[in-house]
């Protein structure tokens, strides 16, 4: 894996290959020329500040969004020009964890998890399905919640149920959009272990978007850092940890830049409000 951003990428370089991807929404240019490849059986982690386009990039990997320009390949086949119907058999091979969970709120947890199974197979053995749902829920620490509706779960619980749904069909490729955000440190680590276990035991290829550097270091084989719609650093954990670029160092150490501090000082002007603190005594 080269340390320079490689523009001469070929469709056979990985399971998923993104070539020179540009995406604009109206006037907003979100992705400005992304090329990357995801290696089979490895975990690729995408990091980057909020709003830099990580979710948009992830959506392109299963063509939920169409590129403004650029190409996307899956197992050497170009997929960004396929229509929805042709994409279906490809999407079935993926598990996709949405940043917001995206659970179906009219279905309970059990029905949510069997949704992907039900869409593509005829269920005859309900006992086995019960078992399967139980094991998937246990993997994310949500056993016993089968009959709850998403609205009655906390954000972190919804996220974990969504993860259980994403792995319901035992996909070979799983895309996780911020799997540990909103979870407590122990739960986060359980998810990290889950991702590692899936890779070890089932040779799952994973792409993980995260802000959580601890998690990134633990699970990543390869880290890609996005900044303002471009890849500014790419390499293994050690390479990223010791990357000379200021922006990278600031991001991985969670340090505030001088510019941000200056903005905070400017915003520190006090406004007179109608009420003074003593009014509340």
């Amino acid at each position: 894996m080269g340390n320079v951003v490689d523009n001469e990428i070929s469709p056979d370089d990985g399971v998923i290959v993104v070539k020179d991807l540009f995406k604009t929404f109206g006037k907003l240019r979100v992705l400005k020329g992304i090329s990357l490849s995801v290696e089979a059986g490895k975990t690729t982690v995408i990091i980057g500040p909020s709003g830099c386009g990580k979710t948009v990039l992830m959506n392109h990997m299963i063509v939920l969004d169409r590129p403004t320009r650029g190409e996307i390949y899956f197992r050497s086949e170009r997929i960004d020009e396929l229509n929805e119907k042709e994409l279906a058999p490809i999407r079935v091979q993926y598990g996709f964890l949405f940043q917001g969970g995206a659970l179906f709120d009219s279905l309970d947890v059990f029905e949510n998890i069997i949704f992907p199974i039900r869409q593509h197979r005829k269920i005859t053995d309900w006992k086995a399905i019960d078992e399967l749902v139980k094991t998937k829920l246990a993997m994310v620490g949500m056993e016993g919640f089968q009959n709850h509706y998403p609205a009655s779960l906390s954000g972190g619980q919804q996220k974990r149920v969504a993860l259980a749904r994403a792995i319901a069909l035992d996909p070979h490729i799983i895309l996780y959009d911020e799997p540990t955000t909103g979870l407590d440190p122990i739960r986060s680590d359980v998810i990290n272990e889950l991702i590692l276990k899936l890779k070890r035991e089932l040779k799952v290829t994973s792409v993980v978007v995260t802000h959580d550097m601890k998690s990134a270091y633990k699970i990543a084989d390869h880290i890609i850092m996005l900044h303002e719609g471009k890849i500014i650093a790419e390499g293994d954990t050690d390479y990223i940890r010791n990357h000379p670029h200021d922006v990278v160092q600031q991001f991985i150490h969670g340090r505030v830049s001088e510019a941000d501090l200056a903005a905070l000082r400017l915003g520190g002007t006090k406004f007179k409000t109608q009420y003074a603190p003593e009014d509340f005594k």
Partner: peptide
């Protein structure tokens, strides 16, 4: 109902699982 599903990405979720949201 469908608008809320759209805004909370549930329609994308249907698509991501290889199901046609129009049909479903």
């Amino acid at each position: 109902e469908l608008g809320t599903m759209n805004v909370t990405q549930q329609i994308s979720a249907v698509r991501s699982m290889g199901t046609d949201p129009i049909k479903y």
